[in-house]
Design a protein around this nucleic acid. Structure first.
Lengths: 250, 250
DNA sequence: CGAAGGCTTGATAGACCTCAAACACAGTGG
DNA sequence: CCACTGTGTTTGAGGTCTATCAAGCCTTCG
């Protein structure tokens, strides 16, 4: 289930992601490639870390689809973020010891575990990398804020449209789209948990989006039929993703 | 309107705040106290920075009450955070050049502007301070997540209760409470913008909270009458604020 | 004292929820 | 190869929380 190794292909996922938000020097790239990792495979619907854990390592997503979530009293849950290959969703655990939420897989997933110590020593040796990692957590925060706008002030139609726009752009930034579509690895119940909606309502609004010809959704495959319309419907402005312009090309 | 100086009382607000979330060494404290600042006074309802600005300095709140917000198409706005004296709400501008939202004052406010260059050079001279500042932005993100839970999954009653709990604990951490109350410098409309509710509904639920004897609210003065009940109503668990235990004392 | 902003109240409407059941589809096992 | 099961999707029918609209009221302040 777990193999220890130091193979570059794994770390390259991280490079691709980081290079979508910052420029990396040759030495920085070197340092990142040399990070020691332990690869771990998980089934769908497993926790990677749980609320109140004190992890001693970060999880780099290699394959699969991961979410950040929190359960509340009456069994409801709120998903606060989706993460793709290249993301390190618990990078914050480097400087905030206790988890105040959980990370879980939505599909079968491979993660690369990177010891905190290794990251810290990497940052000590390459202080300029602090910028890259810090910036990554700041962009994560920007996504939270943007989701808050949706949860607080947008109706279901706009919320869903916005989420699809965000996911499309993020998938494209790490080369995970094909053409004008990508694989949506979330059930309607999971979309509801992310958008603060019931499964039933997600289903109905999804049908509206299809009826209006903005998207096609067959199985897991989500195709964007009318990008401009979808952007308008979701009031989507990718500024908050702070991608390097090359990765924003439309 | 603007005076340049280097007087310690101003920076001490920052120390008090940072020391509620990290331990600082003597040298770190020295470095922080030496930060050059420009004090600026603003009336209520003024912007400190606006969406799409590229600030070259950070704003440390000295006095007053500040919010982070974003406007959307139909004139609605969502407030994504409240900030108190000691907070640096736009610290993220250090590593994310373009503002994707605005910061505005809710009351007359004094801020200390700190040039990015000064902060960067301070961090270069005291790399250990990276932890303090980074951690501050991470806790900001944790607050966004917690607000998302409310917006997505809690009803109005719980949302308001939760917000009051958070504000109380944060005010107390920087010694801004008196007894079991503090000054709530937000109108009901502003609370609504933060909680994703209409002004009318905020008003009604506020009356419920009073009728149930959880709080008293006369003018700006908010008094918490039943802390345990209020916490329960808002499902408030201060873990996400990641305060040092001393500042959590209940 | 008048104006302005904020608070409060009433009435109506709508977006979204809950409950409940049927349907679709993929994987399992005999 | 075909029932069988489980998960996910879809549909229908109420019900409720919260929004909107529209006034009236109160307090502060010039």
């Amino acid at each position: 289930m777990s193999e220890s190794l130091n193979s570059r292909p794994e770390q390259e996922r991280l490079l691709r992601k980081l290079e979508s938000i910052v420029d990396l020097s040759a030495e920085e790239r070197q340092g990142l490639l040399a990070l020691p990792i332990t690869v771990k495979s998980l089934d769908a619907d497993r926790d990677i870390v749980r609320e109140r854990d004190r992890p001693a390592e970060c999880a780099l997503v290699l394959e699969g689809f991961v979410c950040r979530y929190k359960l509340i009293a009456d069994g409801k849950r709120q998903i606060t973020g989706f993460y793709l290959p290249g993301d390190i969703p618990d990078l914050q655990s480097l400087y905030v010891e206790v988890m105040d939420h959980s990370l879980g897989t939505l599909t079968a997933t491979r993660v690369a575990l990177i010891p905190h110590d290794s990251v810290r020593s990497l940052l000590r040796r390459h202080p300029s990398l602090v910028e890259a990692f810090w910036r990554d957590t700041l962009i994560d925060a920007a996504m939270f804020r943007e989701w808050m706008i949706g949860l607080g002030r947008r109706d279901a139609y706009a919320r869903i449209a916005h989420l699809f726009c965000e996911l499309f752009v993020r998938h494209r930034a790490v080369r995970l789209t094909n053409g004008d579509g990508f694989d949506l690895h979330a059930t309607q119940a999971e979309l509801g948990d992310a958008l603060g909606l019931s499964t039933v309502h997600v289903n109905r609004v999804l049908q509206d989006l299809r009826k209006d010809g903005l998207i096609a959704l067959r199985g897991k495959r989500l195709t964007i039929l009318e990008w401009d319309e979808l952007k308008r419907a979701g009031e989507f402005d990718p500024l908050y993703l702070h991608l390097k312009s090359a990765d924003l090309a439309e």
